[in-house]
């Protein structure tokens, strides 16, 4: 059975700093996997390499049967990879609806015209922004901007969704809504790679976790087991707590 995403021996250097060292892991279709690790451990860098934003210095990335290692971001998107950004990046001159329309028009599946407008409305409704397509992005609250970014990612009907701390910065009730939303996607069979610091979310969403520290994978396995490993606790909290 082919993996949805297979990463082998990924490497990334920034000058003298090795940000990602020999990272390998894979995601089965329909799996929601957590990518954890302390600040600066290389999680976003891995996401950036998968989505084509950063070139790899070594290793390969396969999406299903396709080698996407050297593809530019727009080609990776067309292959069916969608992402959100650690810091939300709404497009301010576009309306909320146009932000979503963008990835419908250019993403994995291409839609335009009436059909696209209906799909925009559908995606907005899914994330809880029903009927707000004509609003200016600047009117949206922080969580609504995050919702819009999710709708934009989903609009391309991706095969793989990369969420980089999508739940960060939400208050407890918003967090619950966010978790529900990802669970809903999980129910629809979406494959998700989720970078997250909020353990509550990781426990609720991820059957499996990969933990990075200083650019390397230090643990991998079922969430409950991995989160209890001394090496993981130590990486997160420092030596004193191990």
């Amino acid at each position: 059975m082919s993996e949805a995403l297979q990463i082998s021996n990924l490497h990334k250097r920034f000058g003298g700093l090795i940000a990602v060292r020999d990272v390998s892991f894979s995601l089965a279709p329909g799996e929601v996997v957590g990518l954890l690790g302390p600040n600066g451990s290389g999680k976003t860098t891995v996401m950036n390499m998968i989505s084509g934003a950063l070139p790899c210095d070594g290793g390969t990335i396969r999406l299903g049967q396709t080698d996407i290692t050297k593809m530019k971001p727009h080609r990776v998107a067309k292959q069916g990879v969608a992402r959100t950004f650690q810091l939300v990046r709404p497009l301010p001159t576009l309306t909320v609806g146009e932000n979503v329309l963008l990835s419908l028009a250019f993403g994995h599946r291409r839609h335009w015209g009436r059909e696209a407008r209906e799909l925009v409305e559908e995606k907005l409704a899914f994330v809880g922004l029903a009927g707000r397509g004509d609003e200016q992005v600047s009117n949206l609250t922080y969580i609504d901007q995050k919702r819009m970014e999710m709708a934009r990612a989903l609009a391309s009907e991706p095969e793989l969704l990369l969420l980089d701390e999508w739940l960060a910065g939400l208050n407890p009730s918003e967090l619950k809504i966010g978790i529900d939303l990802v669970q809903h996607l999980q129910g629809q069979g979406m494959t998700v790679l989720l970078v997250e610091h909020i353990m509550e979310a990781v426990r609720a969403l991820c059957s499996r976790c990969i933990v990075m520290s200083a650019g390397e994978v230090i643990a991998e396995g079922p969430s409950a087991e991995v989160l209890a490993q001394p090496a993981v606790i130590k990486a997160y909290l420092g030596d004193d707590h191990a």
Partner: peptide
């Protein structure tokens, strides 16, 4: 608005 987002949208 944002070339990076545009590229990631395809």
């Amino acid at each position: 608005d944002d070339e990076v987002v545009a590229a990631h949208a395809g």
